[in-house]
Design a protein around this nucleic acid. Structure first.
Lengths: 209, 209
DNA sequence: TCCAGCGTGGAGGTCAAGGTCGGCGTGCTG
DNA sequence: CAGCACGCCGACCTTGACCTCCACGCTGGA
């Protein structure tokens, strides 16, 4: 059961530094996703990669930095995907569709590597560096959505941000539930349903005084 | 700065067993909320309560059980509040209002004791007992909402559950964001805005084939 | 007033996990 | 063919946090 990634290399396989680093990151992500940060042992990660602990520490100064490297990559990926979906069109219904697709595809892709758990189910939110990363990506996407909401509805900043938080929160929670429930409907159907819900909710939002 | 709760008792204050237990639970909740599970030390909890560690272990067999006792109480409270809001009326818009109020008031009350963090920001989700509690309360509320959604829209079970997850997820995420952002609008205004959003989304949801 | 008993407290054991040091195998050079 | 440098592994050390043992002091009755 051990060293699934390093098996084909044998224990003595010599790798270029960058390739070794990527392999260590992949192994670490598997262990962090499966066990969470605290229950993940550096020994497990090293064994999973088919190397020994000292080499791990030759690539990363510590456990936290290793985790942050993964979190940075994945948060960046999610943020870019959502931002791109918003920028791809000016049709707001299409934007909702795109954002929902972004969340679902990120979560679904993560079914292979579980990346979304690093962001949305991290057990290291007390660490300021981690909290800062997670809040950064959620806030960036929320603000982008809030811009659209504000110009679409004429609501004030705080009101638009509240609704944007609700919209993105709905997408995120629903996508995670959908995956955790073993995709009870197809991804297209799920996105379509949520798109109807959210679009009916936000389009022609009642103007306020 | 220490022993804030036990100060008026002095160090040697003798308490009836049930009162001592309640005091220990309150001290533990403060420490768990402030630091998370892992960073919370039993020494801190004991000191916060103005007692010493052995008495803590005379009331609770271990750190996990102490945490679970708090989590059970708070999850039960949240679940009952939401369920009650659903049962209080048959008007679905009123129901949405009630559920939103339930989340906001739970989170807002939690501003004093931070209980919602135990449920929604726990750093112990890997522990099966904790995960089971958290999923239990979210699923109970989701299923209750899904019943209403299903009978209101005629959607299938999976579809209704997906929408219910989105609705409750929106409420939960929005309420937490509202609190974390220092209540940028009044609670009534926030609830009213979200009520409009969700009600427009779910009412007269397009019937499917 | 004296004594017995029990709850309390400080000091310590244990253990797990993050973070390093002496052998070893490999490939190159004189 | 022999010696040497270099990168990797097994074994260990330390820290920190959960969880208990010996002395003290307060309560309540004769």
């Amino acid at each position: 059961m051990s060293r699934a990634l390093g098996a084909e290399l044998g224990r003595g396989g010599r790798l270029p530094r960058s390739a070794r680093r990527k392999q260590l990151l992949a192994a670490a992500q598997e262990v962090f996703v499966a066990n969470g940060y605290h229950a993940a042992a550096m020994d497990d990660i090293a064994e999973r990669a088919g190397v020994s602990k000292p080499v791990l520490y030759q690539h990363f100064p510590g456990k936290l930095e290793l985790y942050l490297a993964l979190l940075d990559t994945q948060a960046e990926a999610l943020g870019e995907t959502v931002l791109a979906a918003l920028a791809r069109t000016t049709d707001n219904r299409e934007r909702i569709h795109g954002v929902l697709s972004a969340y679902f595809e990120f979560v679904d892709r993560s079914d292979h590597d579980g990346a979304f758990r690093l962001i949305f189910e991290s057990d290291l939110v007390n660490e300021p560096a981690v909290r800062e990363r997670v809040e950064s990506v959620t806030e960036r996407t929320m603000l982008a959505v809030a811009d659209t909401v504000a110009s679409d509805t004429g609501l004030g900043t705080a009101e638009a941000q509240l609704l944007s938080t609700a919209l993105t929160g709905a997408a995120q929670v629903a996508a995670r539930w959908w995956l955790a429930s073993d995709r009870p409907v197809s991804q297209d159907a799920a996105i379509h349903l949520l798109e109807s819900l959210l679009w009916r909710g936000i389009s022609n939002f009642p103007r306020q005084s």
